[in-house]
Simulated assay, not measured.
Amino acid sequence: MASETSGGGASGGGQTGGESVRVDSWIWSVRLVKTRSSGGAACKGGHVRVNGERVKPSYGVHVGDEVRLRQAGGRERVVIVKRLIRKRVGAPVAVECYVDNSPPPPPREAVAPAGVRDRGTGRPTKRDRREMERLRGAEG
């Protein structure tokens, strides 16, 4: 099999019974990604690392492995595998399957949204649009 010769070794595929589970399936099962296919895409894109190395979707995770997942918006989730599951479960059960060592998300700035227009004022003019872009650029 190709995954056995390409660095996956004996841990690829999850063929050893309950000892390992595919990484794309596991991150989907514990609700770190919305769909299994997006878990596979994250692995293929290099956004998933197990114990510091980039992995393919078929890589087998074991209890005690550190899984790092870079999510949209630049946030990184760092979890330690506590329990292996293959099926997607509810959120209260899912959080019992890992230890979350992720850094806290950056604080959200409490500012009034720029460019909110009053109802009924019509379409913004070019001058209004440039003013709104200038305000948004100054904040971000």
Rank of each mutant, 00 (worst) to 15 (best):
W26F: 13
L69R: 14
V48A: 05
R83I: 00
G7N: 14
A72C: 08
P105E: 06
R36P: 02
V78L: 15
M1E: 06
K126Y: 10
V33L: 07
D65V: 07
V61L: 14
H62N: 12
E133N: 06
D118I: 00
G17T: 07
A42K: 07
R123T: 04
H62E: 14
T121P: 02
G40Y: 06
V81F: 03
N101F: 03
K34F: 15
S37I: 12
G73I: 03
V95R: 13
A91I: 14
K56P: 15
L135F: 00
G52A: 13
E19S: 03
V21D: 03
P105F: 00
C97R: 05
P103I: 02
K126I: 11
R49K: 15
G90V: 06
G40S: 11
G13I: 04
R70M: 11
A10T: 06
R130A: 14
G64V: 09
V48D: 07
G12Q: 12
I27Y: 08
V30Q: 10
E131I: 04
R77E: 08
L135H: 01
E76M: 12
G60T: 06
E133K: 05
K82A: 12
R123V: 08
S37G: 10
G40N: 09
P106D: 07
V55Q: 08
G17Q: 11
A110Y: 01
R129D: 03
P57V: 09
G115S: 00
S3E: 09
A94T: 10
E96G: 01
L84C: 13
V89G: 08
